[in-house]
Structures are given as structure tokens and as C-alpha cells.
């Protein structure tokens, strides 16, 4: 689906947290995962800006590791604050999507 950018704003960070929660991973792999999921418009740069913010806000543990191609890669894992943030994201998501579903069913 095209043109999701506006709607995805604010939820992509949660998606990235969820992906990192599964296993320690890096920007390119996160982007590919999102693309495979169906968010084709998400580019690596978008994920980079999200990771930068997560790092700045102290939600991830960052480790530099050598990679086969090019410079060392930054690998990201969630710390406790990151896991709390992820739980908050799912709670908010649950709330918003249940309200919107209700609206659509005419119960709002």
C-alpha cells in the first residue's frame, strides 16, 4: 500500500522497538524486515533517524561490530527503559485501534 507515511508516523518507532526486542539487530536488517512486512516505502534513512532517537533517549544498548562489507555496524538491543517504552507503545496502540474499530462499527 502506498502513501502510508503520514499514518505510520508515531507507530514506526514502536515497530522498530518490537523488532529489536526479538533479537539484537542492525539498521539495514530492520529496514528489510519492515519492507517484507509490507511497508515498502520505509527506507534505511528513516530507520536510521529512529535508531538515533532511541539511542539519544537511552532506550537501546549499542554495540559496534565488524561487518563483511564496509565500516563496522552498529547493533541495537533493548535495555530495561526500552522494554518499558515498548510495553507503553503496545498499550497505546491497543487503545487507539480499539477506539477506531469502535468508531467504524458505529458504536462511537
Amino acid at each position: 500500500m502506498d502513501d502510508l507515511t503520514e499514518m505510520l508516523k508515531g507507530t514506526l518507532e514502536g515497530c522498530v522497538l518490537e523488532i529489536i526486542d526479538g533479537e539484537e539487530t542492525y539498521g539495514y536488517a530492520i529496514t528489510r524486515r519492515l519492507n517484507e512486512l509490507g511497508f515498502a516505502d520505509v527506507v534505511e534513512g528513516t530507520v536510521y533517524t529512529i535508531l538515533l532517537r532511541l539511542e539519544r533517549n537511552g532506550l537501546v544498548q549499542v554495540t559496534k561490530r565488524a561487518s563483511g562489507v564496509g565500516p563496522p555496524r552498529k547493533f541495537y538491543a533493548l535495555n530495561d527503559a526500552g522494554r518499558e517504552q515498548l510495553a507503553r507503545f503496545w498499550a497505546k496502540w491497543q487503545y487507539v485501534s480499539s477506539r477506531i474499530d469502535k468508531l467504524k462499527e458505529g458504536g462511537g
Binding site: 539498521g27 536510521y48 564496509g70
Partner: peptide, 8 residues
């Protein structure tokens, strides 16, 4: 980030 991208 750009160095990494260029390398791919």
C-alpha cells in the same frame, strides 16, 4: 551511516 550505505 553514509559510508555503510555506500559500501553496499
Amino acid at each position: 551511516f553514509f559510508e555503510g550505505g555506500a559500501a553496499t
